[in-house]
Structures are given as structure tokens and as C-alpha cells.
Amino acid sequence: MKIMLNGQEREAREGETILEMCRREGIPIPTFCYYQAFGGQGACRMCMVELREEGQEQTRLVAACTYPIKSSVEIITESERIQRLRRTIVMLLARRAPDNPLMEALARTYSSPRLTAIEVEPPNCILCGLCIHACEEMGRTAIWSMFRGIDKRIGTPYDEASEDCIGCAACARICPTQAINLEEEGSTRRIWNKTFELVACQRCGKNYTTREELEYLWERTEYGKEKLCESCRKKTLAINMKSFQQ
């Protein structure tokens, strides 16, 4: 389907979101809460773009990550109006993570004024929600967003160690502001108020995962009961392939 993107005619697939299309076309749109595997949440509102529907004179603002293209629309991804919104959104979010390099860089990009910092829990969390999705994707859902309104925050029930948490740290790895506290000391890992014993890779000896995650994966997949870190697994796989080919 033909659509207009920043004044140029482009081909869009019916039903794909504006963001998906723009990524394909190489048009940058800033996002906090979007991750390809999870789809759009429409939460951070950084990806707002101007949209003009057929027969309409005025444009309206829509979230690129959730708007599905279904007709020949016109899309504008950069304008003064959009810049202004992004400036304010960064201004408001940067207060949650005042010293975070990502937020500092964005504040410079959009010339966002600096407001006084606010204390949030966990510190530096901008509530993009990616960690929740990562945890859910792991099949654990140990964390979720609690409370509502200005008290909303992400955590485990009662802020206590959760039975569902396997310490995989998928949440910490996906966090854009490194807000999730992940402490590793010797052979233990501490995350979300729970301490885990780390397991060493049988090949390189590096501590690479928690016992709980390993057991969980063993249960769920058909992998052999090996303890291999990601890079060693690849190496072993490569060796096996070679021997198979020979």
C-alpha cells in the first residue's frame, strides 16, 4: 500500500505499525518502551508522529509504535510540534534518572530544561516497562508494575524475594537506564531482594547463570544437562557441526 512518509511515497505493509515501517525504511524514531520482540506498548510516548488521514486537513499525533497502517495515510516524523513534545517528555523523564548518561544525552539533543530530580524506586527507573516484558517472555512474571498514577513503580509482590524469580537478570540486561540493581559477588548474585548461587561454565569456568535459571531451562528445553555459557555453547556447537560434516 502506498503511503507518504516525510513527503516521499513509500510502500507500507497493511497492518504494520508506523514504527515498524520507519525502522525498515531507516527513518529514526526515538523510543524508550519499544522492543522489537515485544511490540509496541504506547507507554513512553517518545515515538509520537504526525499523521494525516485521507480527506483530513489537520494532522493528528499518534504513537508510531501502536498505530497500525491500514490506509493511505501521510506520516511526518520530524516537525516543530514533535520536537516540542519530545523535549517535554525527556524533561519529565530525566528527573527520574538525572545522572543517567542516556537521559543526559537526550536532554542535550532535545534542549530539555532540567527540572529538580525526584526520588524513584528503583532509582533511575523511567517506567518503560521493558523489564516486565522480558520477565514475562522468560515465562516467569516475577515483576510487574505496582500501584498506579504517580506512585506507580515496578517490583515484586511486597518488595520481597519472589518465588517466581530465577535470577536470570533478563530484566537488568534490557533496562535502558541500568536501574535494576544486579549485584554479583564471588559465586552469588543478588537481584530483586533475592540471592542466588551462580553456576560456573564447565568449559571456561566462568560464573554465567544461577542454579534456578539453569534448572528452569533444563526443565523447559531439550538441551542436555550441560553447564555451558553462551559463548562456550556456540563453540561446542560449532565443533559438533564440524564433526558431523566430516
Partner: peptide, 21 residues
């Protein structure tokens, strides 16, 4: 009232109300 009743999902509403309050 709205700061307590907003669901808190999107930035403009949640953080905007906080700052306005």
C-alpha cells in the same frame, strides 16, 4: 485527584501530573 487516579502507564499523564501538582 488525577495524579492518584491516572493509571500511570504513559509519561505525559503520569509525569505531567506529578510536575503540575
Amino acid at each position: 485527584f488525577l495524579a492518584g487516579e491516572s493509571c500511570g502507564k504513559c509519561t505525559p499523564c503520569r509525569e505531567g501530573l506529578r510536575a503540575q501538582l
